[in-house]
Amino acid sequence: MKKTKMTNREKRNNKNGFLFVLPWIIGFLLFSLYPIIMSAYYSFTNFSAIKDPEWVGLDNYAYLLKDNLFWTSLKNTLVYVALSVPITIIVSLILAVLLKIVKVGKSFFRSVFYMPAIFPVVASTIVWLLIFDPISGYLNRALRMIGLTGENWLGNPPYTKPALVLMTCWGVGTTVVIILAAMGDVSNELYEAAEIDGANTFKQFWYITMPGIAHVLVYQVVLAIIDGFQYFTQVYILCSAQSGNLSSGSAGTQNSLLMYPLYLFQNAFTRLKMGVASSMAWILFIIVFVLTLILLKVSDRFVDVK
């Protein structure tokens, strides 16, 4: 009697559970799985939005391997990711720690650090353009006041990526708040015990806080990597501001602002090579996938995932 009831309930649960997630499953099939499969198919074809796909085998991939701009864009994005991921995480950590320590005006400061995260990217990029101007920008002006010469941030290839990372650091608000929240979850008793053992603040941070928030950090690193590989709008805006004319396809001095998604976008919608763009998409997908897997595997060893 009781057993059959359970089974009925299980049946009902199976039915309802599935029914409730059905919208997502449909959405997944339509907006994730279908595009991914099609993207793979398109990557072996020659097509534009007007022309129908025509099978060309591995031609698009072969084309990319020989394409200088493809390698430039891949290099640019890898450099950007390699710089931005650790730096933004460290900056977020520092801000979170400061928010944790400082008691006066806590919610004010928290809002200040969070605010840029809600700033529309189009708007913030234009503001940063004013700040980075090599001749009259505020950043160089500040640097000159302290005796430095200043740099051509967005015009000299070695400095473009650090400049972009600086912009990204300004928008880390969400990460800061999340890390702060995670810090709040670390049990106070651990700190008290450490205090009794005479551990200093730094030691407490390293041995109690860090392990306590490690799982959150891993998640944030993964998100930062994915965001890094998708970095598009900022460079799109900067490039059109610098060239004054989108059709020139210019992407900063010696293409130093040509990020991978920007080149993918150009291939798809400006150069009208959607097949090539799809190949680029798949290469990106594989890179992100492999990197994330490696990261999760490695972190499994060190991080006690709750």
């Binding site: 101007d133 090599p134 009259s136 920008g137 051509n152 015009g155 000299n156 610098q242 004054g244």
Partner: peptide
């Protein structure tokens, strides 16, 4: 190089 490039970068974003 720095002087010329900086001037051109700055000027380019203010064209017209």
């Amino acid at each position: 190089s720095d002087a010329v490039n900086s001037y051109v970068t700055s000027g380019q974003s203010k064209v017209n």
